[in-house]
Design a protein around this nucleic acid. Structure first.
Lengths: 213, 213
DNA sequence: CATGTTATTATGCGCATGTATAATAACATG
DNA sequence: CATGTTATTATACATGCGCATAATAACATG
């Protein structure tokens, strides 16, 4: 046999940060499109434009890559809603925060599919449970801060314990409406979920109807 | 070679109904314990006490078995809470229904893990979406019936549209509290979730504090 | 421009997967 | 008690999986 030169793919050496980002993005894309079962190392690598072996260079195991993807998903959601919650008055900020959580781009079937896939791993793997806990507590803290400002603005005296209870209830309501509104959007009229959210929060906080609008 | 008699497992011929039930139960057990990734045909069969090949005798594909399992999971939950919602007055029935939804055995990490695993398949597979829709609408109908009775009992006139809005909001709240209370039970004091649920529903329905207890 | 480092490709291994098919044990029926 | 039906076991097959390792192309450095 004479020596044969085997053609080899040319490639680009990326920085660690951007390669990791690409791999995580590809992981999320894969899970969203073909489920966590179909999100194989090879598929993810293909979607990221690299070959399978590279993954082990950035993540010691596939599971660790999944955890990184979960972390990024949740911090992305938190970021989006936090950005939406801006405005002059505390009332406006609270309203915008609520609406943002039950409106696109947060109500998106891709996001939901990803969220659920990771949620189902929480009882099986402590690492996923820790990530959930962190993002849940951060969400709760954000909500509590908004509520404190809101009540201060109205000179209504509310104890820390009450704030916490309100935050838990509001978070539950928002989560549930987000879930159902995203899972079966055609069951609801346009804006129905957002309007229901606002009306319900007014009631939950014992405000007068329309006080939040 | 002389003829060899190969030993073969002895077995019991079960009725179609009970075998299907066993297989579905084994499927749910498997998903809950090792996730949807680990729930392989062989593992499920082993847990049901049969060999792998049998599954194809009852389900034409693994996916169809998963769908059957999802259907059974949801109808089980619906059944449990419906049974809990009994009592003399509509007020009692409504209160018990709410509490049942955020209290064991419904708040159970096994149930949650199963629920989430299936939810994540909804955007990927219309068959799962149909099952979700059916169970959601049945839940909503149950809630609306309870609310109609409740308002009738108090001679409070509420339109059908308002009933629907209330049901959507209550369902969201219940779902969300169930979710968070089950995912991280240690974050909450004993009964905190159930008490928050009752207080919140009172507020949502614009009742006086304590009116539901 | 030569050299060393390493990010990336390429390839292989052992094993598990879902499904198809043939043999057979269990039971129903007459 | 003989016979036919079929639920169940057993086995095989092609494929894909996660992970390990060796070769190499790309780039940084002097």
């Amino acid at each position: 046999m004479r020596p044969v030169t085997i053609a080899r793919r040319s490639y680009h050496r990326a920085s660690e940060a951007e390669r990791r980002e690409d791999l995580i993005a590809a992981t999320l894309d894969c899970i969203a499109e073909v489920g966590i079962q179909g999100a194989t190392v090879r598929q993810i690598a293909a979607r990221a434009g690299v070959t399978g072996g590279l993954i082990r260079h950035y993540f010691s195991t596939k599971d660790q890559m999944l955890q990184a993807a979960y972390r990024q998903l949740m911090s992305g959601i938190t970021e989006t809603t936090k950005t939406a919650a801006e405005g002059d008055s505390a009332c406006t900020r609270l309203r915008r925060f609520i609406v943002a959580n039950v409106t696109p781009p947060v109500t998106d079937s891709r996001t939901l599919s990803l969220w659920a896939a990771f949620i189902s791993h929480i009882p099986l793997d402590p690492a996923f449970a820790a990530i959930h806990r962190e993002s849940y507590m951060s969400f709760l803290a954000e909500l509590e801060a908004l509520l404190i400002d809101f009540f201060a603005e109205r000179n209504r005296n509310v104890s820390a314990a009450e704030i916490r209870t309100y935050a838990i209830a509001l978070n539950g309501l928002i989560d549930g409406l987000w879930l159902e509104g995203t899972l079966a959007p055609d069951l609801f009229k346009d804006q129905e979920i957002a309007e229901t959210a606002i009306m319900s929060v007014e009631a939950l906080l014992r405000l007068a109807p329309g006080e939040l609008s």
